Amino acid sequence: MSALPEMMTAVVCHAPNDYRLEQRPRPVAGPGELVIKIEACGICGSDCKASSGADMFWCGDNPWLKAPVIPGHEFYGRVAEMGPGAAERFNVKLGEKVIAEQIVPCERCRFCRSGKYWMCEVHNIFGFQKDVAEGGMAQYMRVPANAVVHRIPESVSLEDAALIEPMACAIHTVNRADIQLDDVVVLAGAGPLGLCMIQVARLKTPKKLVVIDMVDERLELAKDFGADVVLNPARDDIDAAIKGMTDGYGCDVYIEATGAPAAVTQGLRIIRKLGRFVEFSVFGAETTTDWSVIGDRKELDIRGAHLGPYTYPVAIDLFERGLVTSRGIVTHQRKLDDWENAFKLASTADSIKVLLVP
């Protein structure tokens, strides 16, 4: 492998609405660490919300997002440099295609020590904490020794490999729903994550899979991925439709993947008593509801879903076997120097998933 450059190009987040393309020193692999050459990095909805200044990233005197930082947690690349001990720790070789899970576990807190590493109390996520966990919107990226790394088969395409992180999150979310064969499942949101969830939920073979979204083109793709019924709130009476197909009871499972407060209250209306409500989204604003629906009226099982713990190998295997796909989800690819237009595109309904390809 040829000598690595001393400098690299990277997108750098300095503050809300202040992202810049910069030249930075290429990271160097320390003991147990890797440096990977990025092949693609997706722009996530959370990246767009961080860019626009959502409170969950920037509020308070000690915001969770620590700038200046290179964003990007939906990345993959090839091993370009290995520090002492890294080959043994990660079981990888130079040039191999790899992905690191989005969280860098501290390995010391009660959650990490009990195997619940995705809920790490420190909670360093690639692309949000400067120095500790710089992200993949760059030509090169450092992978710390405490990261969780997986190899990707060469047969997995660029587009599929770039979608492993969202697909892993989708698998975890669907697993949290505990879908049964006789369940009517409603999934709100046919964005990138929702479209991944549809493919995974279809593999669980529920009685009926219903997808709700405001964009007809995405609903058409949802049907291609296995949705039995698609509904658009702009013209369909969602409550009546769900009641009509469930003898008036409501759906057994409701998965919220829109990030819109209205989708939360919608789900509480259309889910049956004793139903399972799975919340995945990152919200840009708070939502309120009548909590007596959850307890006194329906005794619902409310479950959160966060990241993709233990599901990256499953996602990679499903892509390798052709059981899930990025086809139709990855709609655009842009170079790093076109990052500004890429972010704008990712924030509109004209795209589904936008990749930055160095």
Rank of each mutant, 00 (worst) to 15 (best):
R89S: 10
M245G: 08
C109A: 09
A241S: 15
V28D: 11
D178A: 14
R142F: 00
M82Q: 11
E134F: 00
R113A: 10
G60W: 05
P27E: 07
T246K: 13
A177P: 04
F283C: 04
F126T: 12
V104F: 00
A100E: 07
V185G: 09
K208A: 08
D18H: 14
K243T: 08
G135V: 11
C41D: 07
G322V: 08
R218T: 08
E121V: 14
G53P: 07
A15W: 01
Q180A: 12
L318C: 09
E320N: 15
L219G: 06
R20G: 05
D337G: 04
M119V: 14
L345K: 12
G53N: 11
M8T: 07
G248M: 08
R89V: 00
A10D: 03
G42L: 05
L318T: 04
Q333H: 09
Y310N: 15
M7K: 15
L187V: 12
T311M: 03
W339L: 01
H123N: 15
N91K: 15
F280S: 06
G191Y: 01
I352Y: 02
E159F: 00
A40G: 13
G194E: 02
G304E: 02
V185N: 07
D237V: 02
H14V: 04
D301M: 11
W118L: 03
C169M: 03
I38E: 05
E154V: 06
A100Q: 08
D236E: 04
H73Y: 02
Y19P: 01
V132H: 04
G136W: 01
L221M: 13
K223H: 03
N91P: 00
M119Q: 13
T311Y: 00
D350A: 14
D224V: 03
R108N: 13
E101W: 00
Q129A: 08
K243L: 09
W118S: 12
L221H: 08
V28E: 14
C109N: 10
L209F: 01
A161N: 12
Q180N: 11
G248D: 04
E88V: 07
Y19A: 05
A168Q: 08
A133K: 10
K223Y: 00
C112S: 13
D338V: 01
V278M: 06
L4Q: 13
N91T: 08
L34Q: 07
N124I: 00
V211C: 10
T246S: 11
P5Y: 02
F280E: 05
D213A: 10
F277T: 07
V357C: 14
T348I: 02
E6K: 15
A190R: 04
G135D: 11
W64H: 12
I238N: 05
